[in-house]
Design a protein around this nucleic acid. Structure first.
Lengths: 166, 166
DNA sequence: GTCTATAAGATGATAGAC
DNA sequence: GTCTATCATCTTATAGAC
């Protein structure tokens, strides 16, 4: 609270004129960050071909994750003990997930299991980067290759399925 | 310190008879946990075929990560502010990484870049599981599929390279 | 080898002056 | 709307009794 107050040019106590508690501030930051991430993701040209769109979404997501590791922890690591986002700010997080889900479906990948693999591999890039080399790009620069690996795997699975049906 | 003391049947202050500081305790836990993980990984039958061995290593690693999320945070998320492992206990962490590196080489995958992809995708499973469904298996059960996806991608890359050489 | 007592500093939060 | 003053509580850590 003291650090945050200083950052916005106040004493810690004055923050209570705007928020009723520390967790209310966390929740506001959680909400605002997810909205900012969503805003960036929705800026991606919708007319792009689906595969290029997925690549670009992945890159934007990872840029967002590594440009502020503390924000990344708040949003994706459940790092603050006893903090749970409110239903309203949680829904902003679900909107971000929906963006991924929709982009995958546009690539012909509608499987819920595939979406979990996607969040694991993309989230893994951010986790490794921020934990082992914050500020660097050793893992982030693998994003395009990992996206291609993912696409090859799940588009093959889909083709195999379609062939079985025909 | 109070919680830890209680867990081992002591007052917090008595812990200072065994360790000079809180960070010394963190370092000892970091070191011991990595050794335990390494012990489990080295128990995998060395005569197994390399691909089955890689699958088993991945499963053991992820079981270890999800059975104790707080230990996972200490080892892989750099979650404790200002804690840095000592050189000695850091080397135990490197031994764990070497296990993965060696297992990949046995699969014909010797690329440093591939090792980084491996840590990202496997670490991503643990990160998603512990952050979003601690104690569950929604992501952990994808381990075999993700391992196969990884193998297919990097063995193909290798085959393509060999064909070019011949 | 563990305890009580205690220190010095941080934390989240409230009351009330200006 | 921000401040000073203050609170109760928690934290890591030390000193010294038994």
């Amino acid at each position: 609270m003291r650090d945050l107050g200083t950052r916005v040019g106040m004493r810690a106590q004055s923050l209570y004129a705007y928020f009723p508690s520390k967790y209310a501030i966390c929740d506001a930051m959680f909400d605002e960050s997810n909205r900012e991430l969503l805003r960036r993701l929705t800026e991606v040209e919708p007319t792009l071909n689906p595969v290029e769109r997925l690549h670009q979404l992945a890159r934007l997501f990872l840029d967002f994750c590594v440009e502020d590791p503390e924000r990344y922890q708040l949003l994706f690591q459940r790092a603050l003990p006893r903090f749970e986002p409110s239903p309203e700010s949680y829904s902003a997080a679900m909107d971000v997930l929906d963006t991924a889900s929709t982009a995958l479906r546009a690539c012909g990948i509608g499987d819920a299991r595939a979406l979990d693999v996607w969040t694991a591999v993309i989230g893994g890039i951010a986790a490794q980067q921020n934990a082992n080399e914050p500020g660097g790009d050793r893992w982030v620069r693998l994003t395009d290759e990992i996206t291609d690996m993912f696409l090859a795997h799940f588009r093959r699975a889909k083709d195999a399925k379609n062939m079985g049906q025909k």
